[in-house]
Design a protein around this nucleic acid. Sequence first.
DNA 1: ATAATACCGACTAGTTAGGTCGGTATTAAT
DNA 2: ATTAATACCGACCTAACTAGTCGGTATTAT
Lengths: 129, 129
Amino acid sequence: MKISKKSQYGLRAMIHLAQKDGSFCSLKEISEKELIPFNYLEKICSQMEKGGLLKSRKGVYGGYTLAKKHEDITVGELFRCLGERMLLVDCIDGICAQKKHCKSINAWEKIQKSLEKTINSITLISLIK
Amino acid sequence: MKISKKSQYGLRAMIHLAQKDGSFCSLKEISEKELIPFNYLEKICSQMEKGGLLKSRKGVYGGYTLAKKHEDITVGELFRCLGERMLLVDCIDGICAQKKHCKSINAWEKIQKSLEKTINSITLISLIK
DNA sequence: ATAATACCGACTAGTTAGGTCGGTATTAAT
DNA sequence: ATTAATACCGACCTAACTAGTCGGTATTAT
């Protein structure tokens, strides 16, 4: 029941990039301005690039930039991209012998749905202004 | 971003007890019926008793029973009692140098509030019927 | 006296989060 | 062509936490 540092750093990086509006920004800058460990940030941004959230350019004056418009990116997407564990309990989509007469699953499903609705409704742009 | 086994077991145990309607029920029974490791269940119930959710009776025909009416117990209460980590990110109530100009905190606070609202609204009785 | 129970504290193995480190590939400026 | 700045990659590491186990003690109905 905790959001990982990875996702926290990831969102901070995305917000930083969103405010750069299209120009490429180096990991060095993000790392320094956002106080994120450089080596770790590398891994995070690489993952976000593979997930289609960022574009990269190598070499001098290279860096990262958003791959989509920032009104189209949600926190939910970010979480999924970074592998944030979203499934609150295993039994929701797993096999459970007791599932049929299990009453606690109703609680987990409610919480799960509410959570997903919330994170999918928070866009990057809504955080910036 | 996961609900601990402890809380899952805890809720299952509470639901079991709620269906017994006032009579004491042994850990042995709960453990067997709900497929919860006995030794672990002991610790969990002990914690719930200290937290005021359960009452206990020692000796033969002893066991546990609910300490409150089941319409007054919420999943949120259970979580707090069992020490489920509810704070999604440390910076929400912690000290963070960047807090003033930090834009990601808006996201975390939204998610946090929504989560708390949800869990505090799920009562034990609503899960049973 | 016995058996069934709750109660308690110490211990442990496996997993995960949150990184670090060293090296390689690419590219703009000189 | 060389250099410096960057992204990219995989292997490794450590501390904390989860999900228990275990052995023993206290209490109580029969």
